[in-house]
Amino acid sequence: MQTQIKKPPLERAASKNAHPNLTRKYPPYGKKLDDLRRRGLVPAMRVIVTTDWKIGGAFPRIIITDDTPVTCLQFNYLNGLHVEVVHYDHDNHILESLITEILSIQPATLSAFNMDAVKQDKPAFKLIFSKSVMEGTND
């Protein structure tokens, strides 16, 4: 008796390799923002990127969790938006790669706010990138 071995279609394997985008994961609330963008909408307020679930509940936000490396997260929906990374000193190990990833998406502005610096009475706000200084003060 002869058995037939079924091979996967070639075009499926090729398309899987062609889009590394598909292997990236949405951080919590990321899909919600991407759904807005797909419908031609943008959030009315700046987007908060934070590692703490207790921060930024009144803003559109995404949460960076420990379970997925920053380089495996999808951020494309932040393109052209005002983005603020709100972090603590203990997040410093991911901060550089998080900022690099978000900058590669080309936000309108990117700033960082260190919660620990506030407690220590040090400057907490840092403007990292602004496409236009006037746009950066517009929300």
Partner: peptide, 30 residues
């Protein structure tokens, strides 16, 4: 209470940049 996800219409520039960004494959960093 204000809806944090209240949205406004994207500008044509924002929309075209998003469309371009969404089709662009990410650089893979090791």
């Amino acid at each position: 209470m204000i809806d944090p996800y209240a949205a406004i219409e994207a500008t044509p520039e924002q929309q075209s940049a998003y469309a371009e960004q969404s089709t662009k494959p990410y650089k893979i960093r090791f």
